[in-house]
């Protein structure tokens, strides 16, 4: 691990002021400390933001929503009564991620900014366009069973990347139209989700639209939309594993049995949590039936470009979308 200087910030302005070349913010450290140990992250300065006064969950200004501080621990977020009652999809997503120990340590801001678990990204002896731009992507000809099936840049040569975003929480936030509050050298701004995370395009080294020194201070949820919601995660073992495919889904069925509203996001399939707008539009106004849901899944997944070793994830995603919407329609 490269030696680093350490500074504990007292407030967000203090943290931003201290940030400079070679610096990184430290939250719970559950991903960053591991990446530093692996040599993937090599900060010369850690600005510790885990004790900033951003550890509250409470009503958002302007009515009905919820404001979640960026330093709230994942376990505290999932256990919060307002989250459990009003945003069950979010509580379920957080509870399905990692382990009890890691959820106790991990922060909301850090969860959003965790890096892909692609094995090549985490192995500094291998090329990786995300870690070392232009060096190549061995995953495309190698082990990519659990990597992206949609929105990737596999054909882009020096910027090819098929990494997936590993967060469960971010998938629920993407379905819930969360807004991410950011402060930085240029002042404060709000970034909608989807919109924080980006597809690899020509810059796979950039996971998000944040600029150097930007600090997430909070996540704001709009009032819960009408309908029932759930989060379902398909994985290789029953607990403490990343998603092969996951779905955060909300469905509002009208009295006549037609779909009045639907919000759907997928995890484990792309470089960013994938908001399934195509499927949402496809079910709108139609009878809330399995055939409508599977047709919507097909419409969404028409954009998929699976690699030779992960075509099964397209089938998984299709089955998952159909199953969760069916369950919500009952």
């Amino acid at each position: 691990m490269r030696p680093f200087a350490y500074f504990r910030a007292e407030d967000p302005a203090d943290a931003v002021a201290r940030f400079g070349p070679g610096a990184m913010y430290l939250g719970g450290g559950t991903n960053l400390v591991d990446l530093m140990r692996l040599g993937v992250a090599r900060p010369g300065l850690l600005v510790d933001v885990s004790r900033l006064p951003l550890d509250r969950v409470g009503p958002a200004a302007g009515g009905g929503g919820l404001l979640i501080g960026a330093a709230v621990r994942n376990s505290d977020l999932a256990a919060h009564p307002l989250v459990r009652e009003r945003y069950p999809m979010l509580a379920r997503a957080v509870l399905s991620g990692a382990s009890g120990q890691i959820r106790n340590m991990a922060t909301v801001g850090g969860n959003l900014l965790q890096r892909t678990r692609c094995a090549y990204f985490q192995d500094v002896s291998m090329p990786c366009n995300k870690r070392a731009p232009g060096s190549g992507c061995p995953a495309i000809a190698g082990d990519h069973e659990n990597l992206a099936i949609i929105g990737h840049s596999a054909g882009a040569g020096g910027s090819a990347c098929v990494a997936t975003h590993p967060s469960d929480m971010a998938v629920a936030l993407t379905a819930l139209d969360a807004r991410v509050h950011v402060t930085g050298a240029a002042g404060d701004r709000v970034i909608p989700m989807p919109g924080l995370h980006r597809l690899p395009g020509a810059e796979p080294d950039r996971d998000t639209v944040l600029e150097a020194g930007d600090l997430i201070t909070a996540v704001e949820l709009p009032p819960p939309p009408p309908g029932r919601s759930l989060y379902r995660k398909v994985r290789e073992r029953a607990s403490f594993a990343f998603a092969l495919v996951s779905a955060a889904a909300l469905l509002d069925v009208a009295g006549d049995g037609t779909t009045r509203g639907c919000k759907l996001a997928l995890g484990g399939v792309a470089h960013a949590p994938w908001r399934a707008y195509t499927a949402e539009r496809a079910v709108a106004g139609l009878p809330a039936t399995a055939s409508a849901f599977s047709a919507a899944a097909d419409a969404e997944l028409a954009q998929a470009r699976p690699l030779p070793g992960n075509a099964h994830k397209v089938a998984l995603a299709r089955g998952l979308i159909t199953a969760v919407l069916e369950e919500l329609s009952r």
């Binding site: 350490y6 504990r8 430290l26 719970g28 450290g29 559950t30 400390v33 591991d34 850690l46 510790d48 885990s50 376990s75 009890g100 120990q101 890691i102 106790n104 340590m105």
Partner: peptide, 15 residues
């Protein structure tokens, strides 16, 4: 009082 992975905790951050 809360369980945590000591391997992922930097000692300096838990002063």
């Amino acid at each position: 009082g809360r369980r945590a992975n000591a391997c992922l905790a930097l000692a300096v951050a838990h002063d």
